[in-house]
Design a protein around this nucleic acid. Structure first.
Length: 517
RNA sequence: GGGCCCGUAGUUCAGUGGUUAGAACGAGCCGCUCAUAACGGUUAUGUCGCAGGUUCGAAUCCUGCCGGGCCUACCA
């Protein structure tokens, strides 16, 4: 009822077959930064994450662990909840697909699709490998020299199996999807992914099997409980479950359609083809934008369980600090590209960008203020051209950063901010306030005011990326809690405000010394 | 097989026809001393994957080749 614009951002819901790693942390971090930015910018924000807990794989993993599926998912889901604290994420909701509300939403959506004539009962047929307990596409199988068909040249024997299955008439949606992509050019990002999806849809769509009878850990099809809903129909629905679907009078329904689904590039088809088709068929508006993030490698190598080279967010934040880790992930790699996690690169960013440029800027300015200005914000005197130039660049940053956030171009937002940090460091050297202290205290005060004010603006904009560190810097500038949102971007520092004693916020990282020689 | 993308300084990348190809980090030198030995200035480094072609002119367009990646639907 606030009348503010809403902003709904979601992470993928994470499959509980895996413990959290950098990929999960990364996608959620991007959402978190997005959510924090929009909150600061005055939006009514809802940020959702959660876990995807159904399917045959979970059923088996639970069995292997000697637990019931529910007990197993309770346990693994908790490890994703724990990541929220570790990474200082700020979700407004956490959904589990095993919740009652989600069953209700999925079944309601199903019934809507049936009523719309989008679902029919047919037969799912394919090459089935008993050993693998999996179906293979025709193209994935080969007939060997002995005349037997196998899953690939060295795979297990497959046989032709048919089981009853409900189908979604995806084949009817090709043209409408293409029209939708055409009318909503921002729907899929980055562009390379958009091209991929469009060419996939242009290649023709087949009806999609949306139920299984081969396992039971899932949501039963209404009226035909032998059938369990296809896990993706189940999983995708979480985004509207959260908003109360099918109850459009739910207060959270105001957030639908979602403004942004951030996902991994592996699940783009589900989000960009199936999901809008399901929704349009059910008469629900599709989401506004899907952004596919890339993958991380480690020191040039693919992350794999056998190499044991996965980046553990808990270990990384413990060693380098939470905010530097958050900063690195979003600064190092253009969002949407694949990235390589290099220890050396992280330390380089930490020392060069955080300790030397930003941290040291704050420290040198606040120290001079503490020593020369009685620990208070100095008076702003007459501004000269150099002062106005720096202040104008800092002022202009909000619009620049806002535009980059609209594209999820986090690295460019940070680059723009850091250009002004470099300007500010140059300005310190050029104005030499330590020299002015002896010759012209009035001018010195103005210079220091300009610098403190510039740091204030910069720091407001860095808040989404590094919430804890920026809070400390804003504390040192005595910026009140109610003046930290962008609505207060132009509320300048007031002369005479008492400042606390400055303290370094981004210490340099030194490699633990090797054994003395 | 078909489709799409990429290959530019030690490193990460920007640059899609037009002056001596740019930035950051790293390296050398100089300056400063407020500051977390931080900051500023400055210098150097490239056959722009290879070979042809189009053009007055190509990193930028075309062709071929070499190298790398992604997509080619129902495991998430």
């Amino acid at each position: 009822m606030s009348g503010r614009s809403t902003f709904y951002v979601t992470t993928p819901i994470y499959y509980v077959n895996d413990v959290p790693h950098i990929g999960h942390a990364y996608a959620t971090l991007a959402c978190d930064v997005m959510a924090r930015f929009k909150r600061l910018d005055g939006y009514d924000v809802h940020f959702l994450t959660g876990t995807d807990e159904h399917g045959q794989k979970v059923e088996k993993a639970a069995e292997a662990a000697g637990l019931s599926p529910q007990a197993f998912t309770d346990k693994v889901s908790q490890s994703f909840r724990d990541l929220i604290g570790v990474m200082n994420f700020s979700p407004d909701g956490f959904i589990r697909t095993t919740e009652k509300r989600h069953y209700a939403a999925c079944q309601a959506l199903w019934e809507k699709l049936v009523a719309a004539g989008a679902i029919y009962l047919g037969k799912y047929a394919g090459w089935y490998s008993v050993r693998d307990e999996a179906y293979y596409a025709d193209s994935e199988t080969e007939v060997g020299t002995d005349g037997k068909r196998r899953a690939g040249p060295v795979g297990n024997d497959v046989e032709w199996v048919e089981e009853p299955s409900y189908f979604f008439k995806l084949s009817a949606w090709g043209d409408r999807l293409l029209e939708f992509y055409d009318k909503h050019p921002r729907f899929i990002a980055p562009d390379s992914r958009r091209n991929e999806v469009i060419s996939f849809v242009k290649g023709g769509l087949q009806d999609l099997s949306v139920s299984r009878t081969s396992f039971s850990w899932g949501i039963p099809v209404p009226g035909d409980p032998k059938h369990i809903m296809y896990v993706w129909l189940d999983a995708l629905t979480n985004y509207i479950t959260e908003c109360g679907y099918p109850d459009e009078s739910n207060p959270l329904w105001r957030f639908w359609p979602a403004d942004l689904h951030i996902i991994g590039k592996d699940i783009i088809r589900f989000h960009c083809v199936f999901w809008p088709a399901f929704l349009m068929a059910a008469g629900v508006p599709p989401p506004r934008r899907v952004f596919a993030s890339g993958w991380w490698t480690t020191e040039g190598q693919k992350i794999s369980k056998s190499l044991g080279n996965a980046i553990d967010p808990v270990a990384a934040t413990a060693e380098f600090g939470l905010d530097p880790f958050r900063y690195f992930l979003l600064r190092e790699v253009p969002f949407g590209n694949d990235g390589d996690f290099q220890r050396r690169a992280l330390i380089g960013r930490l020392n060069a960008d955080l300790a030397n440029s930003y941290g040291n800027l704050c420290q040198r300015v606040l120290s001079i203020v503490a020593k020369n200005c009685d620990g208070k914000v100095p008076p702003k005197g007459t501004l000269v051209a150099a002062d106005a130039a720096l202040l104008d660049r800092a002022k202009g940053l909000l619009a620049v950063v806002r535009a980059e956030f609209d594209e999820q171009a986090f690295h460019r937002a940070l680059t723009s901010i850091w250009e002004v940090i470099a300007d500010a460091n140059r300005y310190v050297d050029a104005q030499a306030p330590w020299a002015l202290a002896k010759t012209d205290p009035v001018r010195r005060d103005t210079v220091l005011w300009v610098l403190a004010e510039t740091i204030r603006r910069i720091t407001l904009l860095v808040q989404p990326f590094m919430p804890d560190s920026t809070a400390k810097i804003l504390d040192q500038l005595a910026v009140p809690a109610d003046a930290r949102a962008f609505a207060a971007f132009d509320r300048e520092l007031e002369a005479g405000t008492v400042l606390p004693k400055p303290q370094g916020v981004f210490p340099r990282f030194a490699e633990p010394a090797a054994a003395a020689s």
